[in-house]
Nucleic acid binder design. Structure first.
Length: 455
DNA sequence: CGTTTTTGACCCGCGC
DNA sequence: GCGCGGGTCAAAAACG
């Protein structure tokens, strides 16, 4: 039995329903469309505002950097003036102990100036280092791709007349060979190294660079093999690193970097490289002892430089008498996370052999004291301004804290850096400011003079 | 097949 | 001069 009415009614109802449905959908579409337009307009506004903020931020950063550069420039000039006076005094006291530490200095500096380490040469070179160009150059240390390097043995050798710039590795002194007529002390200086101690479970620390293993040795006193790597980012890159586990604590990885990258560095590698290079440059810019009867004052100068780090444990390691002087600066990232006010890492100046630790060490108080007592005696170095100290300390502490709890130092660095966009400029300026005249090691600053450092 | 790693040999400086 | 130890070379093996 059929129900036409019901059918027709239902059809009409369907039409009505459809009509209503279309209208509703149409209304919804219109509503959505208007919302979409609103959202688009809003996004456009946000984008514009974002662009404006970016521009403003860039301006602020540029202004900030330029102001800091000027500020450090002024401070450096004052410190250098003081350094010349004090250096002159020290020459009178112990001229025979002078040692050239011209790490990565300009290859065009006159070799004759390095042939002897007389007091007159020392005075002369220090004065040259006070030159304005040098100061400016030093202030740009560290964060450029090619400027993040410790030294430039490759270029040095190429321009020193070896005539074989394409095979720098073959020219790299195996130990302390005296090549190109350079005095041994110069070779020593070029081989300054930066050692990074960090807790790491992986065989090597991920520092952002590409490395190729070229050797492995079991060194005396440590059953853990020492691996030798060279940088493969660029074919002729002379940078090498040694990786060895700490015998006392197998979780600690000791990575020692040596040399200069002659190529742009990956972003994640830049910061570590700049830090280590600056540290090495700082080490070499400051005075360093070359024999057991070292001058306490001169070593404390280095400590004073890093007294910007409150609570930093700084130790001096003396070179083994049997080993050549290879100044090494150690960045210890293995300390446990700090309390809110402490800075856990330690920074050490040491000999190539950690087994022969010189007993001299000083605590924070000594360092702080040294900051005031010795900063005027520092050759080509000076102390950070307080705002920079705090800023640098804050950011560096953040890195140290993360590095102590994570496998990858690079990740830690990247994290800290990305969370604070100003870190790059600040750490560069802070470190370069501490580097002193030796900071020129990271530059291709032509005509830069070598630096004679009282040892 | 090109690149990287392994590993024994070799080089060099230094102390005895 | 010899031995030791650190560092590098280079051929072979391993790897992707």
């Amino acid at each position: 039995m059929r129900m036409p009415n019901s059918n027709s009614r239902s059809s009409a109802e369907k039409k009505v329903d459809q009509s209503v449905g279309y209208q509703e959908v149409h209304r919804r579409v219109l509503r959505k469309g208007s919302e979409l337009d609103d959202a688009k307009a809003e996004m456009g506004e946000v984008r514009e505002e974002n662009a404006r903020l970016k521009m403003t931020l860039n301006h602020i950063q540029k202004d900030y950097q330029s102001l800091q550069l000027r500020f450090f420039d002024i401070l450096r000039q004052e410190a250098s003036k003081n350094a010349v006076n004090v250096a002159g005094d020290r020459i009178i006291e112990e001229p025979e102990q002078l040692l050239s530490l011209c790490l990565g200095r300009s290859p065009r500096e006159p070799t004759s100036d390095r042939e002897t380490t007389t007091s007159s040469n020392f005075t002369k070179l220090v004065q040259v280092d006070d030159g304005e160009d040098n100061l400016k150059a030093n202030l740009t240390l560290g964060l450029g791709s090619n400027e993040t390097s410790l030294e430039e043995p490759n270029k040095d050798r190429a321009e020193a007349g070896s005539g074989d710039a394409t095979s720098p590795l073959s020219k790299t002194p195996k130990t302390m060979r005296n090549e190109d007529g350079e005095p041994p002390t110069q070779v020593n200086a070029k081989r300054a190294r930066v050692s990074v101690r960090t807790r790491c479970d992986t065989p090597t620390m991920n520092d952002g660079c590409q490395w190729r293993k070229y050797g492995q040795k079991i060194s005396k006193g440590n059953p853990c093999p020492r691996a030798y790597y060279r940088c493969t980012v660029a074919p002729a890159c002379p940078v090498r690193k040694q990786v060895q586990r700490c015998y006392e604590d197998m979780s600690i990885l000791i990575t020692t970097y040596e040399g200069t990258h002659n190529h742009p560095l990956p972003f994640t590698a830049t910061y570590l490289a700049s830090t280590t290079s600056a540290a090495a440059s700082m080490l070499l810019s400051g005075s360093c002892t070359s024999h057991p009867g070292f001058s306490t004052t001169s070593t404390l100068l280095n400590g004073s430089e890093f007294s910007a780090f409150d609570n930093t444990r700084t130790q001096l390691y003396m070179p083994k008498s049997s080993q050549p002087l290879l100044p090494t600066i150690t960045l210890d990232l293995t300390a446990s996370p700090p309390s809110s006010s402490t800075f856990p890492s330690s920074l050490s100046f040491c000999s190539p052999s950690d087994s022969n630790i010189f007993p001299t060490s000083w605590d924070n108080g000594y360092l702080k004291h040294g900051l005031h007592q010795f900063d005027k005696a520092q050759v080509g170095s000076f102390n950070l301004g307080k705002p920079s100290q705090e800023y640098f300390h804050q950011n560096y502490a953040e890195i140290i804290h993360q590095a102590s709890s994570q496998v990858s130092l690079t990740e830690s660095l990247t994290k800290a850096i990305t969370s604070n966009p100003n870190f790059k400029s600040v750490i560069a300026l802070a470190l370069s400011s501490m580097v002193g005249s030796g900071g020129g090691a990271t530059h291709r600053n032509q005509g830069e003079s070598g630096e004679r450092i009282n040892t």
